[in-house]
């Protein structure tokens, strides 16, 4: 087995992204929002194509058409749910309506995350090899119900364990060809990391906040690995608190002094920063990676998470 260093870079330009955003805004506005799925496809194509691992870019093979179908389905599902809740509220059943809304969302959100992961990873290709998400939707649902319940009961404290259990479940089920990701972050460590970050940020009048961000990023990256048989690739963050301070302060200044117009540049420079601060090495021979994952075309979950403004959470 040979030991390798791998490279991961983001080479997109803020200017190009700005232009894509402008075109997307124009088309989405004049179509009253219906263009959104195609706009999203264009944005994703940009981000994937500009993310290069070992000299090979990622490819997003999802299309606007697929996401449009999901968009319509997601829209109908959510309109039905909200319609029902509004109907109940107007008929003086506010509490029943509200309770129903929370219960339905408790079920819809995990299922939507599941659908979103399946679609997004099935459409992610690197060097001709498809990614895939292998999680089971009922396991994820149980995990979320248990997590939500315990988080409420413990007035939020269990939130740290919930977040890590969720992240572990999602990441451990992601494959690229015949290699599999794994994550070993746990709730206890994550909880104390946040307690420490929170308290020290207060005591230092906010200065420690940047070191807290550094710790959170490192906790995410350092616990992530990719394995293929007995071969492994390890990830390590080399960003310092000072790096984060510079990144965030410059982003803030850029945003304020351009009245937000610099947002595309902010996104792009943040991506560059994050990727350039990850060190990847290990023994996986990536040219031996084999295709094992199947295609998946249903983008409904992806679109529901968009409607609910979840983004793509890990």
């Amino acid at each position: 087995m040979e030991y390798n260093k791998y490279s991961l870079v983001f080479k997109g330009s803020g200017f190009e992204y700005f232009k894509i955003q402008l075109v997307n805004i124009i088309l989405t506005t004049i179509t009253l929002g219906l263009y959104y799925p195609w706009a999203k496809a264009r944005t994703l194509h940009f981000f994937y194509a500009n993310t290069v691992f070992n000299e090979q870019p990622f490819v997003f093979t999802g299309t606007g058409e697929q996401m449009f179908k999901g968009f319509i389905k997601a829209f109908l599902i959510l309109v039905t749910v909200y319609g029902l809740v509004i109907y109940l509220t107007l008929n003086e059943q506010e509490l029943v309506g509200l309770a129903l809304l929370y219960i339905i969302l408790l079920f819809i959100i995990p299922l939507a995350i599941h659908g979103s992961y399946r679609y997004r990873f099935a459409k992610t290709i690197w060097s001709g090899i498809r990614f895939g998400y292998m999680g089971d939707k009922w396991e994820l649902l149980m995990l979320c119900i248990k997590g939500t319940f315990l988080t409420i009961v413990t007035i939020g404290i269990y939130g740290a364990w919930f977040a890590m259990n969720l992240r572990r479940y999602l990441l451990c089920n992601i494959k690229v060809g015949d290699a599999r990701f794994s994550y070993k972050g746990v709730g206890g460590e994550y909880f104390w990391l946040n307690v420490k970050g929170y308290l020290l940020s207060i005591f230092t009048f906010g200065i420690y906040f940047f070191w807290w961000q550094k710790d959170l990023f490192a906790y995410f990256i350092n616990n992530l690995r990719l394995t293929k048989g007995d071969q492994t690739m390890l990830l390590k963050s080399k960003a310092t608190g000072g790096d984060f301070l510079a990144l965030i302060m410059v982003n803030l200044l850029l945003f304020v002094f351009t009245l937000g117009l610099a947002t595309p540049w902010i996104v792009v420079r943040s991506m560059r920063f994050l990727f350039s601060n990850i060190v990847l090495d290990g023994t996986i021979a990536f040219d031996e990676l084999r295709q094992t994952q199947e295609n998946f075309d249903d983008a409904t979950g992806e679109d529901i998470t968009d409607f609910l403004d979840f983004g793509f959470i890990i």
Binding site: W126, S127, Q291
Partner: peptide, 10 residues
């Protein structure tokens, strides 16, 4: 060319 079986361009 990406053959859909193994990683890497050919």
């Amino acid at each position: 060319f990406f053959d859909g079986l193994q990683a890497g361009p050919k």
